[in-house]
Simulated scan of single mutants.
Amino acid sequence: MITPGSALKFDLFAEASRKRKIDEAGDPLQTIAQHIDFAELAVLVDGIVGRADARKGGRPAYPTEVMVRVLVLKRLYNLSDEQMEYQLLDRLSYQRFCLLQDAMNIPDRNTIWRFAQRIGVDGATALFQGVDAQLQRHGYIARGGQAIDATLVPAPRQHIGKEDKERLAQGKTSDWNEAKRRQKDLDATHTKKHGKSHFGYKLSVSVDIKHRFIRKIATGTASERDGHHFDAVLDEDNTGRDVYADKAYPSKCRQEMLKALGWRDGMQRRASKDKPLSECQKRRNRKIASKRAKVEHVFAGIRHLGGKFIRTIGQARADVAMTLMAACYNIKRLAMFLHKGVDPFYKNTTA
């Protein structure tokens, strides 16, 4: 019970007062909304997947810009569709970011899910490329060389019986019903790293050394070698010629390829059973480590976006999730750079 004379006060303009206080405190979502052109990103998505045909009847579609903002927000905080629906109903900052503060209706979980399915890999790739175009427009071109690496992206572990595993290994189909089959991820794979077992997918990236933006990406499964997508993520637009990578990447063929293309080999060397590293090679590895670590900073930044865990089933949906993961990292970092006024040509970019 609220007693008379308490500090709690009621006012018809309480909502406006709270909005003002949020702005004064600094809403990070409004910083992103201020500096990222979501209308431009929505046009790119519509150009790839088109708009739903309203002539077929049914409820009119939400504006693409609204849904792109919802999808970005969902990935920024790694929320499920159900959680995203609830937060849109509950949080003022989420409503403002998604242009829904005065809307009578809010996208529900099914609408959010269907939009993600509709844009698919092509739409997600268009978003990633659209963000990259905005990076270029603001002067943040790829400079200083590049660091290439891959990170494991965990997915929900599957509980498959021994008999079903044997049948699947033989290329046969299981006797699961349709509902159960939809919940089984048969694309994700297992791998071991540092003595720990992992299940899921793998995201390979090229990161520019100067600004630490993700410039190229490739996706695969957890069991693929880190160097499997090296050629796919090598960024030919980087103005620097140094290519840094850890000990999982060097090979004689790759070293010759980089030399032929005019790139400088910055891959760390690894020892073999009968041939330990020389002192010169060890010093070289240590020198490369500080440059190569730039990509680890990026992976740490992705973990801060609610973690790398994805809730999808199947390679295609995982590709969408990982592509959006990279796009949202760049969105958040670009907004921070522009908010702080980071000069793209400043000698030492430490942000």
Rank of each mutant, 00 (worst) to 15 (best):
H211Q: 13
A54Q: 09
D149G: 04
W263A: 07
L79H: 14
F309I: 09
A61L: 02
R59K: 13
G307R: 09
H229I: 00
D343Y: 04
D265P: 02
Y201N: 12
V205M: 14
G145Y: 08
K247M: 01
V43N: 06
R18Q: 04
I119R: 01
A326D: 04
V320G: 00
R225I: 05
M104E: 15
R167L: 14
T221I: 13
T125P: 08
D132C: 08
G301A: 11
K282I: 12
I48C: 02
A7T: 11
W113H: 13
M267C: 12
Q95F: 05
G314L: 12
E15D: 11
L100P: 11
S80G: 15
R69L: 01
T31E: 03
P4K: 09
T151Y: 05
L234M: 10
G58M: 04
K210N: 08
D343V: 01
R292W: 04
Q268M: 13
C280M: 07
I310F: 09
N177C: 15
D226R: 00
G130Q: 04
V295W: 05
T191N: 07
P60G: 13
Y94F: 15
N330C: 03
V320H: 01
R167C: 04
G240L: 06
Y201A: 12
F230V: 07
D37Q: 00
R114H: 15
I148Y: 00
R283H: 12
V43S: 07
E163S: 10
S251G: 05
R91K: 15
T64C: 09
F10Y: 13
R18S: 04
R264T: 14
A124V: 04
F128E: 04
E24S: 06
K56D: 08
I331L: 15
A260R: 00
R59A: 02
I214Y: 03
Q281D: 13
K19N: 11
R20E: 11
C98F: 08
T189A: 01
I141N: 07
P28S: 09
D246K: 03
V121R: 13
Q101L: 09
A116H: 06
E279D: 14
T125N: 10
L99D: 14
M104S: 14
S80M: 06
R96G: 03
F13N: 15
L338F: 09
D102I: 04
N238S: 13
M325Q: 14
R241T: 12
G123H: 03
D175S: 15
L324E: 00
A222Q: 08
I217W: 10
D226S: 06
E85P: 02
I214R: 01
A42C: 02
D53W: 09
G139C: 04
D242G: 06
R109E: 15
Y62Q: 09
S204D: 10
S272I: 01
F199C: 05
H35P: 03
I310M: 06
V72M: 05
C98S: 11
A271K: 15
I148T: 00
N285L: 02
L76E: 14
G200F: 02
K165P: 00
A124E: 06
R270D: 06
N78R: 15
D90R: 13
N78C: 12
G306L: 01
D274L: 01
L168D: 10
S251I: 03
